[in-house]
Design a protein around this nucleic acid. Sequence first.
DNA 1: GTGGTCTAGACCACC
DNA 2: GTGGTCTAGACCACG
Lengths: 131, 131, 131, 131
Amino acid sequence: MFVHVDPSNGIAIYDQIVRQVKFAVACDALKPGNLVPSVRELARDLTVNPNTVARAYRELQADNVLQPLRGTGLEITLAAPKKCLADRAALIRSRLRSVLGEARQSGLTAEDIRNLTEDELARLEPQGNQS
Amino acid sequence: MFVHVDPSNGIAIYDQIVRQVKFAVACDALKPGNLVPSVRELARDLTVNPNTVARAYRELQADNVLQPLRGTGLEITLAAPKKCLADRAALIRSRLRSVLGEARQSGLTAEDIRNLTEDELARLEPQGNQS
Amino acid sequence: MFVHVDPSNGIAIYDQIVRQVKFAVACDALKPGNLVPSVRELARDLTVNPNTVARAYRELQADNVLQPLRGTGLEITLAAPKKCLADRAALIRSRLRSVLGEARQSGLTAEDIRNLTEDELARLEPQGNQS
Amino acid sequence: MFVHVDPSNGIAIYDQIVRQVKFAVACDALKPGNLVPSVRELARDLTVNPNTVARAYRELQADNVLQPLRGTGLEITLAAPKKCLADRAALIRSRLRSVLGEARQSGLTAEDIRNLTEDELARLEPQGNQS
DNA sequence: GTGGTCTAGACCACC
DNA sequence: GTGGTCTAGACCACG
């Protein structure tokens, strides 16, 4: 299963589902034409209210990531991978911008920030080396 | 005045006040022993309910940034500057870590991230050049 | 129900609630994962304003005793029992120290204090014999 | 001077003055017939609002610790020493009772409490050995 | 239903 | 004048 939710981490559950579906699409774990689990099935697996799953799927349809397949379920759209990758990149860029802006405001020099970044990149290398 | 709030930016008003006071302390704009504006005065200036300001000040007391002088007002504590600087640094480090982590997960190479960072730093240079 | 408040005993109502919840946790009457009564329910039971209960619960969250389950309620955290027991012990130790210090300052001998203590312990024995 | 106030320790300033005068009387540092400093003088020395000192003296008169000496000032009454000692003893007894009660409620045995008490008494011995 | 935020207005003790 | 507490009632997002 590609979704896990934590009801006590502050992020809305429906939003956790939305993000993880998008992430799975961005990673090619879900490809266009694949069916996502039914609302009831996913709700049971996550021990979550079906309304919550339905809301997540509704948002994913509004975002053109999912589309209904008449009488069958919801499938990943053709446009989804491109969209999810773009969304993710835009999100990262905006978060990076905001944290760098705050860092500068706090009096860190550009050099300080480069060093911090290298530190953190070095910590990340060993594991997720998808580059 | 060192506080401005935007009631429609998603962040709770009381929290905007908390953050800005801490920021002002971190910047030495507010020093230990200084009195912050009274609850009523700040509420009037921000056209916000006094309870909202009081809540912000209460949280700042819980964080040991403000200290009551009975019948007189609230003053910045001696420990505040150290605390606010440390908080700010820790916050930036953790946010940087999380955004870099996500960037790597999304398949960006360390080099991609360095380039993105340099782009954003270059955009920030002209203005807030406090380094 | 594990909370009773006395609006006229000098201690703020929200603080009475905070203390009693912590006490209930320290006594294992509330265990990690248990939900506390909803803000509105407890407010009704105590015939107190919901904001007052909400404030108490907010402080308990700040103290890492309660944790929100979005849309569901507030649960006792895993760390709560340890924290509440430690808090209580530390509180008692510090109060005992301060009263003994004052007693000595007032010219009571160690023996006087021992006698006073035994008197009071004897008065307490019959009732709350939880030892 | 026998009074020191800390405006930021949570206890009302007027109350700090009241307590310290009573304590000085209980210790024989102030004896019946001694004059206390004038309101203005004490207010200047403590850099405190004269109203605050006046209020403290008013309470001390109400408690029959001070009495006006026509056109001269306020003097310690004859009854003051006995009263201050008794007050202090009563206060200590009630605080001891409350902390012991809480300790028992928390599950400490009488023996635990005796040990705690001995520990704290031992810590106090070296210094204030007025017994 | 749940908690979170905000407004409005009251009363208190303290300086 | 100051902060602290409490009440009352509104609106929001979430499940």
